[in-house]
């Protein structure tokens, strides 16, 4: 059987193929942006405060949410409820930790441990509800998570009577989030740790492999003996917990639980995953790509902020850049099929 038609052992492709340059595009774009804005605004852009505090620190909560959004997108779905769930979970935690009731009467703050535990439970239950709707009851993720986002958000508003919850300044809650270790904000460590856990889950565990299989071809995954419904459900549950942790960290850093702060996360987290798909690993959602996407987006946003371009036009440029980034792989895919 050895002399049968062998696959031609072809030479490597000539010229520069898109696949070859792809891994360098993201980091390259980041370096290019830093050099570009750095040379124009060396005093305001290229400072440690700006790069660490204004760029990295600012996206720590979003990075957590985008990381878990990656998990859901790996199984071929998406979760529009992350913002609402983050607000709800943070709101629950805050009402335990605050030093005054919603009505303004002074009160004894509750246990920090209880607050964090409750936050995680709310995230898990919220994510599990979305997962059950999508995976076990067959509701399309678009409408299921869109509606659940509104449910979560408005339930959170009801819980805090539509007001921000101030005064979360005890039990080291805020101190940890606002503190620094070795001159780097603690939130960056927390974010990085969560991102690392998600990376490990997706790339180094059997559950991660199953998730990629389910997202790649759900029928083939099922025939391979994978419990595809559970895998999908688990992705949403994990996403719920991550969203809750993101909300908790944001409210700790602001010393305020606010139902509007997590609102932009829904779209930005999904955009970050798409950026990561475009920049790395041949169009599959992946954690390093997502984190790179989050940082790229924020760097551009921050750099443009230094210019005197109109604020609205800045956002036109930001989101236009997202389109530019996802375009080449999309075109390459069409070409490939020619």
């Amino acid at each position: 059987m050895t002399d049968m038609a062998t696959v031609p052992q072809g030479r490597p492709a000539r010229g520069i193929s898109f696949e070859r340059v792809r891994p360098f595009l993201g980091p390259g774009a980041l370096v290019a942006m830093v050099v570009f804005f750095g040379s124009i605004y060396p005093d305001t852009f290229l400072t440690k405060t700006n790069l660490v505090e204004n760029i990295l620190q600012q996206v720590t909560a979003l990075a957590i949410v985008a990381a878990v959004q990656t998990v859901v997108m790996v199984v071929g779905e998406f979760d529009l409820s992350v913002g609402g769930l983050a607000a709800l979970a943070a709101g629950f935690a805050a009402t335990i930790l605050n030093t005054a009731t919603i009505d303004g009467d002074p009160k004894q703050p509750g246990s920090l441990l209880l607050a964090v535990f409750l936050c995680v439970v709310v995230g898990l239950v919220g994510g599990a509800v979305c997962g059950t709707l999508v995976s076990y009851l067959g509701v399309l993720a678009f409408i299921a998570t869109l509606a659940m986002n509104e449910v979560f958000k408005n339930f959170a508003r009801f819980r805090v009577q539509g007001k921000p919850v101030y005064g979360l300044v005890q039990n080291n809650f805020v101190a940890v989030a606002q503190g620094k270790t070795w001159a780097v904000p603690n939130t960056i460590y927390i974010s990085a740790a969560i991102a690392l856990v998600v990376w490990f889950l997706l790339d180094r565990t059997t559950l991660g492999r199953k998730m990629y299989a389910v997202g790649g071809n759900i029928d083939a995954a099922r025939y391979s003996g994978i419990n595809v419904r559970f895998v999908k459900w688990a992705a949403f549950a994990i996403c719920g917990v991550g969203a809750a942790l993101g909300g908790l960290m944001q409210s700790a850093y602001n010393a305020t639980a606010n139902t509007t702060a997590p609102e932009p996360w829904m779209l930005k987290s999904i955009a970050a995953v798409f950026l990561g798909m475009a920049l790395m690993r041949n169009g599959r959602p992946n954690l390093p790509g997502t984190i790179l996407g989050v940082i790229l987006f924020r760097t551009l946003e921050n750099g443009l902020n230094k210019t005197d371009i109109n604020n609205y036009v800045q956002d036109v440029i930001n989101w236009g850049a997202v389109i530019v980034a996802v375009l080449p792989p999309a075109i390459a895919r069409i070409r490939e099929n020619r």
């Binding site: 990629y212 790649g216 083939a220």
Partner: peptide
């Protein structure tokens, strides 16, 4: 039968 991934990842599924 197949997921859009490498031969390795398909065989190991």
């Amino acid at each position: 039968g197949l997921v859009p991934d490498t031969i390795e990842r398909n065989i190991n599924l």
